[in-house]
Nucleic acid binder design. Structure first.
Lengths: 198, 198
DNA sequence: GACAGTACCGTCCGAGACAGACGGTCAACC
DNA sequence: GGTTGACCGTCTGTCTCGGACGGTACTGTC
């Protein structure tokens, strides 16, 4: 049907409007900021240009309110909802991508001063603890609200990842990376095993 | 000193040349592919344009071999090494960024067909298991080589993250997310606690 | 050694993504 | 009604992205 390729960011916009109903770019900006923005970041300018593109494609409907501030409200069309549904149902071939400056620095560490590792680890521990606190705060505030329950699920993934990172940097700081390997042996859920035997 | 802003990708190039010695873009491409590329991906075209920029800045030295194929070999200058070291020692303020299509789909799942979750989870489980196998294979091949020991450390972080994701998707597939929360309570290393009490 | 076939290697290009400066708009308070 | 500061939208130049494309070396064939 639509031969156009939509970027993940396009689907974020479609998805947010599907969840929230008709929205202005600024509505989206705020909503994204404390939800999906944590695992799919993009500059807010996209939220002003991309919806127009989607409207051109017939996936969003635009209604302009010219009272006072120029303000555009976008709502989902049937075609937009269909496109979103099709994407949701399509296979996901790509592996997630990480971009971690700290990991980069650690990788190249041997070129520099070995003494910088402890401070790097300390920074990372702090950051991940803070992020965990943010996530836990969300769980406390919204965890009991049945309406936001679906969205709590992704938080759970975020928390797992944060804790994984925190465990790593903590073990590194304490010079006991072997502990991680040992701990992993016990945690494997047993659904299947990795293909390389040992 | 240098008022120029280098991107993380620039430092990847400097770092790779620091680790490997003088290299051509293609050398870098292959080397990146099975190492740093796993946690900092970028298109290979960058490896042809960026070194020239770095050479202009005096951070790399260029030697052209005009026998046969035009081929450029870049090596690190003292200023390049200094820039890399300075970066390695500088504080890391940013949190890592994730880009996970699967997580996005999960977040917007309620808009679509709930039945798509199991297949999404199954795909993810497979992907993460495969990636774990790749990493484990590397550990087996290079784990005993003292020279590559430093680089094994980042692998350990990769493995932690992969296992975290695997645990999550497995729990989701089995409909037992609560298990994750319970398990996390026990694993906390105790360096500190999150700021939100419960 | 001419030729074809194939893997290797480098370059280019249009479409987006990006950061962040900038300017307009509003509410509140004096 | 003027001033202030928070709120909201737009714009710009630059960089990134991915992938198509084209050139180059190697290998085997006769």
């Amino acid at each position: 049907m639509s031969a156009v390729r939509l970027s993940p960011t396009s689907y974020v916009i479609l998805g947010m409007i599907a969840l929230r109903g008709p929205s202005t770019p600024y509505d989206l900006k705020r909503a994204v900021g404390h939800s999906v923005g944590y695992f799919w970041n993009f500059p807010h300018a996209q939220l002003y240009s991309e919806p127009d593109r989607l409207a051109d494609l017939g996936l969003l409907a635009l209604s302009v309110e010219d009272s006072g501030r120029r303000r555009k409200t976008y709502s989902l069309t049937d075609r937009g909802r269909a496109a979103l549904r099709a994407w949701l149902a399509s296979p996901t071939d790509e592996h997630f991508q990480m971009r971690d400056i700290a990991e980069l620095k650690l990788f190249f560490n041997e070129v520099g001063d070995p003494d910088s590792v402890p401070s790097l680890a300390a920074e990372q521990i702090k950051q991940h603890e803070e992020r965990i606190a943010v996530y836990e705060g969300m769980v406390e505030r919204f965890g009991d609200d049945p309406a936001s329950r679906p969205r709590m699920i992704t938080l759970e993934l975020g928390l797992e990842m944060e804790h994984a990172a925190l465990r790593f940097w903590t073990a590194l700081a304490e010079g006991d990376l072997d502990r991680l390997r040992r701990a992993r042996k016990g945690t494997t859920t047993g659904t299947s095993s990795s293909t390389t035997a040992e």
